[in-house]
């Protein structure tokens, strides 16, 4: 079995966390070849991930911004030597891999959480309210892995880097620009600690309290969909079925009631702390430690005492 895994490259830099976890998922299926669409430096970085047997480097402007038409064409062209085509379930891969699958006349397996065997996989459906195991009859399996529960692959590898080329620019789309939010905090999906605020936080100004607690704990800031829809927090902070899926060591839910759609995004966290003034809030049913309290007194007290 040979696996072609698409490395996560953003703005010309390898995203090590997502790529390394995708390698861990892929290594269960066979020998891993990592495809890097970016500059040589990103490929060198990728070659150090343990468990990668070869790195294919496609250093071409056509592939630089993750435009699906171009990258899908490249992957489809490389596919014949592989039994599986994989990637981490990022917005880049979710855009590209279904297109690859259709070009190869096969189905896609999105958000796989467990590999049962070479053609049987477990994945969540209905926002994680059910888990389904499916067996595919397709010759080439196209898979995105949900990385929240995958371990990082070790470093110290030294895979060979080879150049790869494909059909280049399909002439269908152009990249205009990115508005990427930069932050000194850890990245939400890979942070060890996440502090999230919900509708109970009440305003955008008060959301600073969530950020202060996150900074105190060295964690990332998250938000419920209710908080995002109310304009308290930016949409890329949303944790839940329609946002990011996280599984940190410690998840602190502040003023979050615990709607099904939010739980789908954080219930794999190792330890969950809930602070809510409503003792009936469903979040307490999944919390390891629950505190019924007004967040405007409890959170400042925590910040002071930690």
């Amino acid at each position: 079995m040979a696996v072609l895994c698409l490395a996560e490259v953003v703005g010309g830099a390898l995203v090590l966390d997502a790529t390394s976890k995708a390698v861990t998922g892929s290594a269960q299926l066979g020998d891993v070849t990592l495809l890097v669409c970016g500059p040589a430096a990103a490929a060198e970085e990728a070659a150090k991930i343990s468990g990668v047997s070869k790195v294919l480097l496609a250093d071409d402007a056509a592939y630089a911004n993750g435009l699906a038409e171009n990258v899908a064409g490249l992957i489809a062209g490389l596919s014949e030597d592989f039994s599986h085509i994989t990637a981490a379930s990022t917005s880049i891969a979710k855009n590209i891999l279904p297109r690859v699958a259709a070009l190869l006349d096969v189905m896609i397996l999105s958000d796989v959480i467990e590999v049962i065997d070479a053609d049987t996989f477990k994945r969540p459906i209905y926002a994680g309210n059910a888990l389904q195991t499916v067996k595919t009859s397709d010759a080439i399996k196209v898979i995105t892995f949900r990385t929240a529960t995958l371990e990082l692959a070790a470093g110290g590898g030294s895979a060979a880097v080879e150049a790869a080329s494909g059909t280049g620019d399909a002439g269908l789309s152009n990249h205009i620009g990115d508005a990427v939010v930069t932050s000194d905090r850890p990245e939400l999906t890979s942070a060890g600690v996440v502090v999230s605020g919900g509708r109970g936080v009440g305003s955008e100004d008060d959301f600073a309290l969530i950020a202060q607690l996150a900074d105190k704990l060295g964690g990332a800031v998250g938000a419920s969909r209710a908080a995002v829809d109310s304009g308290f927090a930016a949409n890329d902070l949303q944790v839940g079925q329609t946002g990011k899926v996280v599984a940190p060591d410690l998840y602190v839910a502040v003023g979050i009631s615990g709607a099904i759609q939010h739980l789908a995004g954080m219930k794999d966290s190792k330890v969950i702390v809930a602070i809510n003034k409503d003792e009936e809030a469903p979040i307490f049913q999944v919390a390891d430690f629950g505190l019924v309290a007004d967040l405007f007194s409890a959170v400042p007290e925590m910040i002071e005492k930690l």
Binding site: I116, A287, L291, A298
Partner: peptide, 23 residues
């Protein structure tokens, strides 16, 4: 192309404990 092998409920997360104070 897919055959459903099984569909299951996700494992329930056991409720933990309630604490009385920030301390």
């Amino acid at each position: 192309r897919h055959t459903i092998v099984t569909t299951e409920e996700p494992a329930d997360r056991a409720a933990g404990i309630m604490v009385g104070s920030v301390d």
